[in-house]
Design a protein around this nucleic acid. Sequence first.
DNA 1: TTGCAAATTGGAATCATTCCAACTCATTCG
DNA 2: CGAATGAGTTGGAATGATTCCAATTTGCAA
Lengths: 150, 150
Amino acid sequence: MIQKLTEHDREKLQESLATSGQKVTAQREIVFAVLLAKRDHPTVEDVFQRARESMPGLSLATVYNCLETFVGCGLVRQVNHERESTRYCPNLAPHAHFRDEATGHVHDIELPPEIIQSLRSILPPGFNSETIEISFRGRSQETTARSTSN
Amino acid sequence: MIQKLTEHDREKLQESLATSGQKVTAQREIVFAVLLAKRDHPTVEDVFQRARESMPGLSLATVYNCLETFVGCGLVRQVNHERESTRYCPNLAPHAHFRDEATGHVHDIELPPEIIQSLRSILPPGFNSETIEISFRGRSQETTARSTSN
DNA sequence: TTGCAAATTGGAATCATTCCAACTCATTCG
DNA sequence: CGAATGAGTTGGAATGATTCCAATTTGCAA
Ligand SMILES: [Mn+2]
Ligand SMILES: [Mn+2]
Ligand SMILES: [Zn+2]
Ligand SMILES: [Zn+2]
């Protein structure tokens, strides 16, 4: 069962939707809450399963709709790796993605601004890019990185 | 009609295939020639159309098979942008891709080694990446960049 | 020749995503 | 209050790229 949105997050949702003339609905609240609850870059199907625990009548089409709406108003990013299902990420800070081939897990990799700058600088004159996407593929020592483990 | 492979390119094809125990076939030669002839990152369907001009009986399944084989033995790279059809690129030098949203064209962007290095360096310890993919999205002033234009 | 394994082929199956027409629901208007 | 309106939701059908499969065909080797 998904935690309700905090007041702060609900406001962010409300305001982002408002700027593109859209409203908060029960479905959108839950889908957004699902994304914030577990930032593991879930697929649409993942989101659907998790959201249904709180709202059994929710439809897959609506999950697609909500996610598209969120992407449209800049609340979440789409993450694509090769030909796999699209995943969704509510981390708005500039970051790259690392896809672990062994587990399928996708991790956020912080992107220092100077790297973004140097990347922009390799574009020949006349090329104006709105978006840069960087994705790594490989293996990671899936250490669950709790400070005190074992 | 597609130009035949140069002796040099045919050898590259032959050797790359050989290292994974596979043979040169008429279909593979043509598909490879199509990729080399126009380096515009064609889709499977593009390749299919172009190759059929030289070999009318060629099947779409075979184009998929050939391209998969080439990717497997490192002769070409797959290029994915968002959810669009996969494109194929025979440029083996390290490079990024720029997708022009206005035209749909995909351009190669040279990647200086020091950028690749700095990108690798942002990975936290324990993350080993075999592949880095960088793609830009935006507009370009589609100047056909002939030295003497007009 | 004959036999074999690899490659090719056409068509069916898959599956993520998109489309659509009917339905629901909140809000506005009389 | 009701009815009208419009956004949002829903289930199911349609789409389209890719994969799968079983039946040939091919190129070599015995
Ligand atoms: Mn993980
Ligand atoms: Mn171009
Ligand atoms: Zn992310
Ligand atoms: Zn390329």
